[in-house]
Structures are given as C-alpha cells and as structure tokens.
C-alpha cells in the first residue's frame, strides 16, 4: 500500500503571544493509504478544518511535516500544493468563481498544476467532456455550460466544485464540511455524488463533518479530533459496526468530557 498522505506531528498556534493565542493543532499525526476515505469528526474548535487547511497549505505550520504521495509539501505555498489536491469548502461561494461561467470554472480546474499561457482558455473538446461530466450529476446543468456560476444554487455549486476537485485525479481530496450549509435533501444528494466520484476515480479522501451518522455511513476510516489532537482512529470492520452511541462513549472515555456539540448529537 502506498502512503498517499502522511502528517507527522504538526503544530499550529494562531495569534501567538497575544491574548487571543490559540493552540489549534497540538501534534497531529495521520497516515492515509491509497484509496482510504477517512471521515473526520470532533467538536467545535477540535482542529478538523484546521488540519485540512494545514494539508492544503493555507498557512505554514509551526512544526512537523506533511507528505502527499511521498513528496514533502510542508514548505510549498498553497497554489503550488494545489496540483496534489482537490478541495471542496463549507461555504458554496468559496469553491467557484461566481462571475465566470460553469465551463470557465471547470476549464480553470482542468489546468490545475499546469502553466497558464496564451492558448485559448477552453477548447471545443473540453466543452464536450464537461457536458458529459455535468450530465452524470443529474442536475440539468449540462445545458447551462455558459451560465454564470453565481446564478446557481448552493447544492449545484457544491456539485460543480466536486467535479472541479476531481477533474485532475488529485492524490488527495479534501472535503471540508461541504454539505453543512445545504438543506438536508440537497446535502444527501451532494454526499451521494461525493461517494460516487470518490469510488469511480479511486480517490483518497478526507471528509470533515459535524454529522456523526454521515461520518459512520461514509468512508472506510474515521478519526475523531479533540483540542488539536487525533484522539480516535477507527478503521475496517470496527468502523462498519460503529454506532453513534459507541462514538459518544468512546469520546467520553478518551477525552474525559461530554461531547459538547449539540449539532452533532441532534443531526
């Protein structure tokens, strides 16, 4: 098995030396093998999204190492790291350029990790490809290639962002609570699309979620974070048998606290 992602003891403190000082990552270790789909849960401020942002290179970590597909990316800037990654964000506004058309957004994603020169931004061949990719979403977007993304709903944008994230077969797909801002029905649809894209492209993926049921139902692994550390790491058969009650018990045992997120319990 090849290691697709290896995180070695990364630390990150925000606003060091001020009254707002916050240790966001307190020595996170994680290894993902090729084809692993890990769901990440934990309370607010546990470090879930922060871990994804550290992998994506939104800011440099204070210490530790990050390897993607065997390459040390710890010092690479966010835009250079993009060639390894596909990313979908919590806010549907974040993943797309709203003043540009659907096909322009996809064409930009299709050139991720390549130089951008003076050749035409979209070729006719690409357009046909995008049309067929959009048709698989079953959202009626295949006839709206030249529509501005700003006119679309949150769910449609997340679906397009998923296509954009997977279009270059990234070594790692990062889904950062990408259904949290959607209504339950749309969220289920976007999750279904995510599963399908991950399976069809044999992607290695990390999905942060607030929803324990989703975390259990999706992926082959699950990690729980608390106060900037990974406190639970469940895989294989053990994960398949997991229930929400199990998770809550485990959380209380490992952290010595009650699980503090109502959102995760109620949903």
């Amino acid at each position: 098995m090849t290691e697709m992602l290896k995180i070695e003891h990364i630390r990150k403190t925000f606003n060091p030396g001020t009254i707002n000082e916050k240790v966001a990552l307190d020595g996170v270790d994680l290894v993902l093998n090729e084809g692993d789909f890990v769901t990440v849960i934990g309370g607010n401020g546990a470090g879930k999204s922060t871990t994804l942002n550290a992998v994506a290179g939104v800011w440099p970590v204070d210490s530790g190492k990050i390897y993607i597909g065997g390459d040390d990316v710890t010092k690479l800037s966010e835009y250079k790291r993009a060639k390894y990654l596909g990313r979908v964000f919590q806010d549907p506004m974040t993943g797309t350029a709203t003043t540009m058309s659907i096909e322009e957004n996809m064409a930009i994603a299709a050139r991720r990790g390549e130089g951008r020169g003076l050749s035409w931004g979209i070729t006719r061949k690409e357009r046909a490809l995008y049309r067929s990719m959009l048709a698989t979403l079953d959202l009626g977007l295949e006839d709206r290639l030249s529509s501005k993304v700003g006119l679309l709903s949150g769910g449609q944008r997340q679906a397009i962002t998923l296509l954009m994230a997977s279009i270059k077969h990234p070594k790692l797909l990062l889904l950062d609570e990408h259904t949290a801002a959607l209504d339950p029905k749309t969220a289920a649809k976007v999750l279904e699309i995510s599963d399908k894209i991950i399976a069809e492209n044999h992607l290695t993926a990390m999905m942060v979620t607030h929803n324990m049921k989703d975390a259990i139902a999706h992926g082959n692994r699950l990690i729980m974070m608390h106060e900037g550390r990974v406190i639970l790491n469940i895989a294989g058969e053990e994960k398949k048998k997991l229930t929400v009650e199990d998770l809550l018990h485990q959380f209380e045992r490992v952290s010595g606290e009650e699980f503090a997120s109502d959102k995760a319990l109620l949903s």
Partner: peptide
C-alpha cells in the same frame, strides 16, 4: 479573472 473574483478558489486551483 478568477484571481479578481475569488482569490481563495484561484489558489485552490493552483493559480498564483
């Protein structure tokens, strides 16, 4: 255009 519209998206798509 992507840089002007949404720099976060642009960087995620490998745009400097």
């Amino acid at each position: 255009r992507a840089t002007g519209c949404n720099p976060q998206m642009a960087r995620a798509q490998g745009i400097n």
